[in-house]
Amino acid sequence: MPETLFIDGRWVSAAAGGTREIHCPADGTLVAVVDEADETDTVRAIAAARAAFDRGEWADTPMPERGAFLLRVAETLRERKEEFAEAESRDTGKRIVESRIDMDDIAACFEYYGRLAGNDAGRVVDAGSADVLSRVVYEPVGVCALITPWNYPLLQAAWKIAPSLAAGNSIVLK
């Protein structure tokens, strides 16, 4: 079985060796066997995300570069739309036409945040004096824990992943 947990920049197996079968809700066929993460894996993922954030490689990346990365994600999603739509349909049991729409929405989400991050996110605020320039600047906060439901896993994951990465945070996704 391939390693299916992505922790600390690499694919790994669950520490306890547990697995789970994923079946298509529409017809019951086996889609995949995946590693079943437990508390040990969760703690390991959180520690890795914290260490990655503290190293500052992503958090210190200029917003335009983070935006360009998210735009590349959107482009890749569009290029591989059929592949991802089929996987989403098999995972959720939804019709392929719905999954194709979801893939368009997911790509649009990454594109939206990519463009937003590509611009200066600072906002000038009237400080009441011509001698004072006051600017609101958004900064990353750290590790974001992202949990998605079973019914729209990729779409709702995108709604969380794209803004978290655009802001410079590291993430743990369940």
Rank of each mutant, 00 (worst) to 15 (best):
V124Y: 08
A167V: 02
R10D: 12
W150T: 12
E75R: 11
I96G: 00
A108P: 07
A158W: 08
R115K: 08
L154P: 06
L5G: 04
V124N: 10
R115D: 00
E21Y: 01
A162C: 10
D104N: 12
V136G: 01
D8E: 13
L71Q: 04
L165D: 02
Y152M: 11
W11N: 13
Y113L: 02
R123L: 12
E3Q: 13
L133K: 06
Y138A: 09
S13T: 11
R95I: 09
K81C: 07
I106K: 01
A121E: 05
E139K: 13
R50F: 08
A51L: 14
I147E: 12
T19A: 05
R10S: 15
N151A: 01
C109F: 03
P140M: 07
K174C: 00
I161R: 06
P153K: 11
I96W: 12
A74V: 04
F110H: 02
E111M: 01
D8S: 12
T42W: 03
A51D: 15
A16L: 08
A145R: 12
V137H: 09
V132M: 14
S89G: 15
S170K: 06
T148L: 08
V172K: 10
A117P: 03
I46H: 13
A107P: 03
R50W: 10
T61N: 00
A157C: 15
V12T: 14
V125E: 06
I22Q: 07
L165M: 01
V172I: 12
L154W: 13
K94T: 12
I147Y: 12
S89P: 06
D27V: 01
S134G: 00
W159A: 12
G9Y: 11
T40K: 09
S89M: 10
A85S: 14
G28Y: 04
G67L: 04
F110P: 03
L146C: 14
E3Y: 00
L71S: 01
W159G: 04
A130W: 10
C109K: 04
G17H: 06
S13V: 02
Y113F: 14
L71Y: 02
P140V: 08
L30E: 08
L5C: 08
S129I: 10
C144G: 13
D60V: 01
K81D: 03
W58Q: 01
A48I: 08
R10W: 00
I101G: 14
E3D: 15
G114T: 02
C24S: 15
R55V: 10
P153M: 10
L116R: 08
A85E: 08
L146M: 14
R95K: 11
M1D: 07
V73D: 03
Q156N: 13
M1G: 13
D120H: 06
A16D: 15
A162M: 07
L154R: 09
D105A: 15
A85F: 01
D104S: 13
R66F: 04
F6Q: 06
R90K: 09
D131L: 13
V33L: 06
I106C: 09
E39S: 11
L5S: 06
E111V: 02
F6M: 07
T61Q: 03
C24N: 15
L146P: 07
P2Q: 07
D120V: 05
